[in-house]
C-alpha cells in the first residue's frame, strides 16, 4: 500500500515539508480526483488515506493483478460494501478506465451517508419480489 500513497502524494504535487521515516511528510496533501477536496494524506489515526472521506472516490495507482504501481491513474468509484468476518466494512472500488476492482477498509471519518446508501442500495432495487420471503 505504500506505493499507493506515495503516488497519491506525487501526482497531486504535494509538499514534502517534513518527511517521516516511512517516506511521507505529515503535512502532505492530495486533491480528490472526483470532488476536488484538498485532503491531508495522513488520516487522524496516523494511517495513509487511500480514498477521499467525503465522496469515497479513489485513484487507480496500484496494479492488483500483477502488483506494483499501475499506469492507469483512472478515477475509482465506490461500488459496494463488503463485510469482513470481524464485522468491519470494506469499500469496493472499481476503476472507470480499466474496470479493475480493489477493496480498502473504511476509515473512521468516511462519509456515513454514502456508506449507508451503498449498503442498502441492493434492497432498493431487488431483481425478485421480496414478498415471497415472508413465507420462507
Amino acid at each position: 500500500m505504500s506505493t499507493h500513497h506515495h503516488d497519491h502524494a506525487r501526482q497531486s504535487g504535494s509538499t514534502h515539508a517534513r518527511t517521516t521515516t516511512s517516506g511521507f511528510g505529515k503535512t502532505d496533501t492530495f486533491t480528490c480526483v472526483h470532488c476536488g477536496l484538498t485532503l491531508a494524506a495522513l488520516a487522524a489515526d496516523g494511517r495513509r488515506r487511500d480514498h477521499c472521506p467525503s465522496c469515497l472516490h479513489s485513484r487507480h495507482v496500484v496494479d492488483h493483478v500483477e502488483g506494483g504501481p499501475s499506469e492507469c491513474l483512472g478515477r475509482m468509484t465506490p461500488i459496494s460494501i463488503a463485510v469482513l468476518r470481524t464485522g468491519d466494512w470494506m469499500v469496493v472500488h472499481r476503476c472507470v478506465r480499466c474496470d479493475e476492482l480493489t477493496s480498502t477498509p473504511v476509515r473512521a471519518d468516511d462519509n456515513r451517508l454514502i456508506l449507508m446508501r451503498m449498503a442498502v442500495r441492493p434492497l432498493a432495487q431487488p431483481p425478485f419480489p421480496l414478498e415471497a420471503f415472508g413465507d420462507v
Binding site: V83, G87, D88, W89, R112, L113, M116, P122, L123
Partner: peptide, 20 residues
C-alpha cells in the same frame, strides 16, 4: 448477501447506522 452489511454490525458500521 445483500443483508450482510446490516446484519454483522462492527464498530465502524454501527457508527454509520447511528449517524442516520
Amino acid at each position: 448477501l445483500a443483508l450482510r452489511p446490516l446484519r454483522d454490525v462492527g464498530t465502524e458500521a454501527s457508527g454509520a447506522l447511528l449517524a442516520l
